[in-house]
Design a protein around this nucleic acid. Structure first.
Lengths: 336, 336
DNA sequence: ACTGGTTGCACAACCGGTTGCGCTTCTATG
DNA sequence: CATAGAAGCGCAACCGGTTGTGCAACCAGT
């Protein structure tokens, strides 16, 4: 039970003016004399008046809240996205309501409901891995609720999207391995159904092909979780396929790969080189520090937020749908 | 620009009843006949009526939003806290607005302002490392805004708190090292000004004392960041002090410690045993997997949310201030 | 003195629900 | 048959700002 807040009515009464005058005085409206404005501002300050955001949201029919749906807050590059989104959004006078789907389609739908109930002015979303049916997002678009997808986007969606250029990044990672003399390059993908796995695998194939290296199905392993990636890598290492390098397409798979490497006491990069597609912070958690393609969470967050806010703020010229591809950065460290 | 939403007035008009009747029908008020309720509910469903949460917040003078302030979303156990808080809060019909202070006192104050502007019904907070002056929190308490602190709490604050039992956990970690035969036990703390560092260091001293081991200042190292912890550990390893085990009091220091260990090619646990005070997921990122005290983010989040919601929902019996200590769990893995 | 324009403010509607109160109409009871 | 009470619904105020409109007071120009 909070104490009652000061309202413009309190100020109006004490000053013997109407509440509309107070309202306009506070917003420096030209209709109000300087003398009145000064009196109002002085009293407002004295009483520690805080405008009631709920009342304003209600009146304006806009909450100045942006909804953000992510699969998970934590692993691994979402935090940097969130940070960037938060910064951009605050800069333009909005706030953020962050919800996690936990990779569940049901919770994703529930979260969308929550955001709508809270009258968010727009939504930023990265879809859950398990979501198969995207009609909850499609109906938002039909209702013209501004929405921008990032990183994990629904198939064939008619909305703004901001993406890592998976293909480009993966290609450069593999190319880097090739250029440092590797011949039996493995790739550890995540869930094969994810677009991200597919794209990065395609790039891997293309790079091999471009450099005239054979594609060997045995060198493609997959693990949806760290543990699965660990097992798959362990199997690969102890198989007859003699890989000389591994490209791990995500933080989670990377973690699994490195565990297997430690377990088997493999020299990196002498015996096997490793390159990831991960956040810089994780590359530093291993020895030697890992080479990686940085997925640039910060850039994604900033760009996605900008697209959304532009769409909200400028009501016109919104017919064009923008799909933005951001290129990851290749950082070379001790593992290659 | 979103499409206009259906309101109870739309329903009322179509049905030829007043909006108060619609409102009551929707909430199953006894004054309304079953026939009318059925008609209202049917039409509401047909039109996909969604109550306007902003209007309700405004009228009820409560937002059903809980504000959550954390230093950072990511490293390392905040995600599990957030997840638990989110779950608890949703269960009781509230939503979460998450803000990060980024370990900055200014942003912590700004975030508090944002939450107040958004009329949150209560606040969960873990304070920034750099915050020295807590009057922004104290004035909240004076205004009787429900608030619960967790993990990092202001000194001498008169509010509910939920804490890890640092002392207990650290004691058990050191005790475990002692019982496995270590004699020259080091501790790597974070910022020495933090309560967490101080408490865990005290426990370390007490455990040594209880088991009749001498305290040696040279075995206490500190690193506020991973890099600093790395350097401090590296120095220690290459010094004459011959430590046989290290207790790292946080995820960040742990990461630094392990990097130094890898760099110096030290056998774990043969030459140096390592134990952390970290999330389970991080213990698995090293080889051998690390023994650790689990700070139980999930429990903290749940408990903190429950305390806050209880305080919000039951208006009475709120005079007592609760300070809750949760014990971490000792998990023994390959590193000790 | 009359007109036209400007200045500075008040009034009231409005946003979408909630809720106390009061008004019918119908039923039951003495 | 009169009347008390209940059932079912409408009216209007209210939450705290914002904003279109109206209008009095004043000034300058003719």
């Amino acid at each position: 039970m909070k104490d009652k807040n000061i309202t413009i009515i309190d100020i109006a009464k004490q000053l013997g003016v109407s509440k509309s005058t107070v309202s306009r005085a506070l917003k420096d409206h030209p209709d109000i004399s300087k003398a009145t404005k000064d009196r109002v501002n002085a009293l407002a300050k004295k009483l520690k008046y805080k405008p009631n955001a709920t009342a304003i949201s209600f009146r304006q029919q806009r909450s100045r809240i942006i909804g953000l749906i992510v699969p998970q807050i934590s692993p691994f590059f979402f935090p940097s996205i969130i940070k960037a989104v938060e910064k951009e959004v605050h800069k333009r006078g909005y706030n953020l309501m962050i919800l996690q789907s936990g990779e569940s389609e049901k919770r994703e739908r529930d979260n969308l409901e929550i955001l709508l109930h809270n009258n968010v002015d727009g939504i930023l979303a990265s879809v859950s891995r398990k979501t198969q049916n995207f009609d909850h997002f499609e109906s938002l678009i039909e209702e013209h609720i501004p929405i921008v997808f990032f990183d994990r986007i629904p198939k064939n969606i008619k909305a703004d999207c901001v993406l890592i250029d998976d293909f480009d990044g993966a290609y450069r990672a593999v190319e880097h391995l090739i250029k440092t003399g590797r011949k039996k390059i493995s790739i550890c993908i995540g869930n094969p159904n994810l677009l991200i796995s597919q794209n990065r695998l395609e790039a891997y194939k293309k790079a091999l092909n471009d450099y005239a290296l054979p594609f060997d199905d045995n060198l493609v392993i997959s693990g949806e979780s760290t543990l699965e990636a660990y097992k798959a890598t362990d199997d690969l290492i102890n198989s007859s396929h003699k890989t000389d390098s591994i490209f791990a397409i995500s933080d989670l798979t990377m973690s699994g790969v490195m565990q297997a490497i430690y377990k088997n006491n493999i020299q990196v990069p002498d015996k096997i080189a490793v390159i990831g597609f991960c956040e810089s912070i994780f590359s530093k958690m291993y020895q030697p520090t890992l080479s990686y393609i940085n997925p640039l969470g910060k850039k994604i967050g900033k760009k996605a937020a900008q697209l959304l806010l532009d769409r909200i703020d400028n009501e016109e010229s919104q017919n064009s749908i923008k799909q933005i591809l951001l290129s990851g950065e290749l950082v070379i460290n001790g593992s290659t």
